[in-house]
Structures are given as structure tokens and as C-alpha cells.
């Protein structure tokens, strides 16, 4: 007797299992929602895990204030559809309140400011587990991350001292003040995510599909022209046919030239591409281990 399921269904079952473990093992979990495709897939899995019940924890969005308007519109309509509770941690408010100081200059990023705002939001909400859509194929420091990733009372990650994680037995035991970051789609690749979105017919923001948009090229990265981007005097704005492979802060998320306007062409494009998706992200390019450094401090 033999039966098998395809790789997407196996990854889906693994993700649902992990999400249900979180709901069972933690008192007050939350799902980190960025508006990107990975967190949309996470939300979809959470919805399936507890259906017909509602997702039994809130979704937390750390809002840098530098969003594509499409991201926010999409987020709000998704929350309505799922009846999910949304909690917003605002980087702009933290700047206004003088809790964090904004970087200056043309290459100023708000990415570093997300970490203190995230930690504060988690602290205020007393969340003991934060589910994230990070994948191990994204970046080399993430390749070593556990499904259940322990954080100390300062939100720090200690990569050399991670708990062993065997079989499907996830140890979420912790002391008061500590918490966990949980990554249910650790074993997915970018291609798996797209194939799954196509398989399940999940709605995604149209930023992921090819469209025309005003852009500038800076250090080889195509950036969308938005009110938040400080243009240098010699930078030339051009209309380009682009789509985004990741959606983050509008000032540091690079677009790619693409004609892929439907799911099939996106899947083909991703299967053929020779650049990692974070290759377009200025925040990762700052140093060889910038992701590990940010993660140690509490970045997700």
C-alpha cells in the first residue's frame, strides 16, 4: 500500500501543524503581517488551520509609514474578509515620539527602526510567540533558523546556542519574559510560495504583477518613485514595466523588469530567475552578515 501527496500539500500540512502547535503551546501568540506574499500565505494557512473558527490570534503589522498604498488597501480588505484582529505598530509614531531617530541622507532606511518598534509592540501586547513568514532559502542566516526560535528577554537571537529541534516535536517551553519567533514556512522556497498561491488561488496585491510605474535606478536597484524617496539631483525618473518580488518598505524594495502579468508567467519567471529575491533589497546589502546582525537584535 502506498500513497503520496505532492510537495506543496506536504509543506502545507507541515505549516498548519506548526501553527496549531503555537496556538496550543502559547498563551498569547500573534502573527506578524507585512503585506508581502509570505505573510499572506501564512495568514491563509492560519485560516485553514482553525476553519471554520476564526484565526485565534491577532495579526501585527509593523508599519514603517513608507508603504505602497496598495499594501495597506490590501491588508485592510483581507482583515475584513477573515474577520481577523489587526494590531499596528507605527514607526512614524515612534519617530514623532522621539523613541527612535530617523536615518538621514539619500540612502536613509527605516528598516533598522522596525526592530525597536516591533519589540515594543510585542511587549505592549504581551505576546509570547510571534509567527513570521521567513524562509530558510531567503538568506544564509535564516538557513540556520529553527521553526521555534527562542528569544531572550531582550528579544535577542543566540544563533550558536539554539535548541535542538527533532522530528515534529517543537519545544516552546520558556521562562517568564522570554518569547519565541515561529517560522511555519521555513522549508518553503520562493517557487513553492508562488506555486501554492496558484494552487490555492490566493489573492495577492497587484504590485506582484507586471505594471507600468515611474522608477529610478540607484546602485543597480530599480526603486519605485514614491513621496518617501529622496531623489538625487542627477537621478532620472523613467516609466518602466516592472513587478515586485518582495514587498517591504517602499524606499528599499527593488523592482524587477518583468512582463509577467499572471500566475503562470510569474511561476515560469521565478523558476528561471538567477537572482535571489532579496537581491533587490538595499537593507541586506549593508554587510556580509547584516541579516544575522539584525536578527540577533530582534529583527524577524
Amino acid at each position: 500500500m502506498s500513497k503520496s501527496i505532492n510537495h506543496l500539500r506536504e509543506l502545507e500540512s507541515e505549516g498548519i501543524y506548526v501553527i496549531r502547535e503555537v496556538a496550543a503551546q502559547f498563551e498569547n501568540p500573534a502573527l506578524l503581517f507585512s503585506g508581502g506574499k509570505d505573510s499572506i500565505v501564512m495568514t491563509h494557512l492560519a485560516h485553514k488551520a482553525f476553519y471554520p473558527g476564526k484565526i485565534p490570534f491577532p495579526l501585527v503589522h509593523i508599519d514603517t509609514g513608507h508603504n505602497f498604498p496598495e499594501t495597506i488597501a490590501f491588508r485592510d480588505s483581507l482583515m475584513d474578509k477573515l474577520g481577523a484582529k489587526l494590531v499596528v505598530g507605527s514607526v512614524q509614531e515612534a519617530i514623532d515620539a522621539g523613541k527612535v531617530v530617523e536615518e538621514k541622507g539619500y540612502t536613509a532606511l527605516r528598516n533598522g527602526l522596525q526592530t525597536p518598534v516591533l519589540l515594543e509592540t510585542l511587549e505592549i501586547g504581551k505576546y509570547d510567540a510571534a509567527l513570521g513568514g521567513a524562509r530558510r532559502d531567503e538568506e544564509k542566516a535564516r538557513a540556520k533558523e529553527r521553526f521555534f526560535s527562542h528569544r531572550d528577554e531582550f528579544g535577542q537571537w543566540d544563533p550558536k546556542n539554539q535548541r535542538p529541534e527533532l522530528w515534529n516535536l517543537f519545544n516552546g517551553k520558556k521562562n517568564v519574559g522570554e518569547h519565541f519567533r515561529i517560522f511555519p514556512i521555513s522549508n518553503w522556497t520562493e517557487l513553492d510560495v508562488w506555486q501554492y498561491i496558484a494552487l490555492e488561488k490566493i489573492d495577492i496585491p497587484n504590485l506582484y504583477m507586471s505594471h507600468k510605474r515611474d522608477c529610478v535606478v540607484r546602485d543597480g536597484v530599480i526603486l519605485a518613485v514614491t513621496p518617501f524617496l529622496n531623489l538625487k539631483p542627477d537621478e532620472k525618473v523613467e516609466e518602466m514595466t516592472v513587478r515586485f518580488r518582495t514587498i517591504g518598505d517602499a524606499t528599499c524594495t527593488g523592482a524587477t523588469l518583468s512582463d509577467a502579468a499572471d500566475m503562470d508567467s510569474i511561476i515560469k519567471e521565478v523558476a528561471m530567475t538567477r537572482q535571489t529575491e532579496r537581491g533587490g533589497r538595499a537593507d541586506d546589502k549593508r554587510s556580509e552578515t547584516s541579516m544575522e546582525d539584525r536578527k540577533k537584535l530582534g529583527y524577524f
Partner: peptide, 17 residues
């Protein structure tokens, strides 16, 4: 183009892990 064989939408539904 540094292509690889494109994976069509039908193929990936039969892929095992």
C-alpha cells in the same frame, strides 16, 4: 538567458518531496 527547464503548472502538482 541562463534558463532552466520551465516547470509548468501541471508538472509541479505531481512533484514529491
Amino acid at each position: 538567458t541562463t534558463t532552466q527547464e520551465p516547470i509548468s503548472s501541471e508538472d509541479y502538482l505531481n512533484m514529491e518531496l
